[in-house]
C-alpha cells in the first residue's frame, strides 16, 4: 500500500483535482445551467495561488482561499451578465469567458509570466490536504442533493416554471450555482498549481473543458458520485491504456460516444437503475408471501378471520 501510494502520488492527486474540476461543471448542470465558467475559475484559482505564493509567500490555505473568493465574486458577476442566456448559448458564452481568461494569462506580462507562465510556487500543500478538502466538498454536495434542497434544485432543472410556482426563486438559485461553480473550479486550480509548483496558459486551456465534460458524461451528470466515478476512470485509464499507444485518444472517443448515445445517465445511472430493480424485486416477494399466509390462515379458521376483522386494522405497506 505504502509503495503504491508513493509511486502513484501524481495520479492520486490528479484524481481529486479533476474530480473538483468536473464538479464545477456538474453543479450548474444539476440546476439545468449549461455553464463552463468553472473551467475559467480554475484558471483564476491557479494563477491567484501562484502569484500569491511566489510574490508574498503566503500559506497555501490563504493562496487557495483568495482564488476561491475571487472566482466566486467573478462567478456572481458573470451570472448577472449572462442571466438571460440558456442552453447552448450559455455554454458558448461561458467557454468564451474561459478562453478570454487564457488570453489574459498569456498577455499578463510579469504578473502572469506570459506564455511561459509562472514557476516556483513552492508550498506545504500535501496529497492528504487535497483529499481532506475534497472530502469536505463531497459531503456538502452530497447533502445538497438530498432532502428539500435537492428536490428544489431538481425542479429548477426539470421545470423552472413549475419551480417558480412552488415558491423557488429560480433566478437566485442560478446565481448561486455560478458562485459555487466558481469556488469549486478555483479550488481545483489553486491546489493543482501548488502541487505542481507551476502554471502556464497551456495548463489552464480548452482541454480542461473536454476533460471535465468527459468525466461527467461517462460517470453520470446528476450526482457527485457520477463525477467521482468518471474522475477515477479518466485519471487512471491512460496508465492502463499505455499498451495501445497512440490509439489512446481513439479509445477515449469511443468510450465517450458510447456513453453519450447509449447510457445518458452515465455509469452511475446504470448502477442506480440496477439497484432500484434489485430492491423492488426483493420487496415484492415477501409482500406476496404475506398475503398468501393470511389467506391460508383464514381458510383454516373462520373464527380467527372474524376476530381479525373486528380488531383495529394495522396498516401493512409493501
Amino acid at each position: 500500500m505504502n509503495t503504491w501510494w508513493l509511486s502513484n502520488q501524481i495520479l492520486i492527486q490528479s484524481t481529486f483535482i479533476s474530480l473538483l474540476l468536473a464538479l464545477s461543471i456538474q453543479v450548474p448542470l444539476r440546476a439545468g445551467v449549461f455553464s463552463f465558467a468553472g473551467i475559467g475559475s480554475y484558471a483564476i484559482g491557479a494563477y491567484t495561488a501562484a502569484i500569491l505564493t511566489i510574490r508574498a509567500q503566503v500559506a497555501p490555505v490563504v493562496a487557495i482561499g483568495a482564488g476561491v473568493l475571487l472566482a466566486a465574486v467573478v462567478g456572481y458577476l458573470l451570472a448577472l451578465l449572462v442571466a438571460r442566456l440558456s442552453g447552448l448559448y450559455l455554454g458558448m458564452a461561458t467557454i468564451s469567458f474561459t478562453l478570454f481568461l487564457g488570453v489574459l494569462a498569456t498577455n499578463g506580462g510579469d504578473l502572469t509570466g506570459g506564455a511561459t507562465g509562472l514557476f516556483g510556487a513552492l508550498s506545504t500543500l500535501t496529497t492528504e490536504h487535497v483529499i481532506a478538502i475534497t472530502v469536505v466538498v463531497l459531503v456538502l454536495l452530497a447533502a445538497s442533493e438530498r432532502g428539500s434542497f435537492g428536490r428544489r434544485v431538481d425542479a429548477v432543472r426539470e421545470d423552472p416554471q413549475l419551480a417558480v410556482s412552488l415558491g423557488v426563486d429560480v433566478v437566485r438559485v442560478r446565481r448561486r450555482v455560478f458562485v459555487v461553480s466558481g469556488a469549486l473550479g478555483a479550488c481545483a486550480g489553486g491546489m493543482n498549481t501548488l502541487l505542481r509548483t507551476t502554471v502556464s496558459p497551456e495548463t489552464v486551456g480548452f482541454h480542461l473543458v473536454v476533460t471535465a465534460l468527459t468525466i461527467i458524461i461517462v460517470g453520470g451528470a446528476m450526482s457527485w458520485a457520477g463525477a467521482a466515478i468518471g474522475a477515477v476512470i479518466f485519471t487512471w485509464l491512460p496508465s492502463i491504456l499505455q499498451f495501445v499507444g497512440e490509439w489512446q485518444l481513439l479509445v477515449y472517443g469511443i468510450v465517450v460516444a458510447i456513453a453519450a448515445v447509449y447510457v445518458p445517465g452515465g455509469l452511475l445511472g446504470l448502477l442506480q437503475e440496477g439497484w432500484r430493480r434489485m430492491r423492488r424485486r426483493g420487496r415484492r416477494l415477501p409482500a406476496e408471501g404475506a398475503v398468501a399466509q393470511t389467506q391460508a390462515a383464514a381458510a383454516v379458521d373462520p373464527e380467527k378471520e372474524l376476530a381479525a376483522l373486528a380488531a383495529p386494522t394495522t396498516e401493512v405497506r409493501p
Binding site: A163, V164, S165, L166, G167, V168, D169, V170
Partner: peptide, 8 residues
C-alpha cells in the same frame, strides 16, 4: 410581485 413569492 415575483411569481415565486406567491407560493409563500
Amino acid at each position: 410581485t415575483p411569481a415565486s413569492r406567491l407560493a409563500h
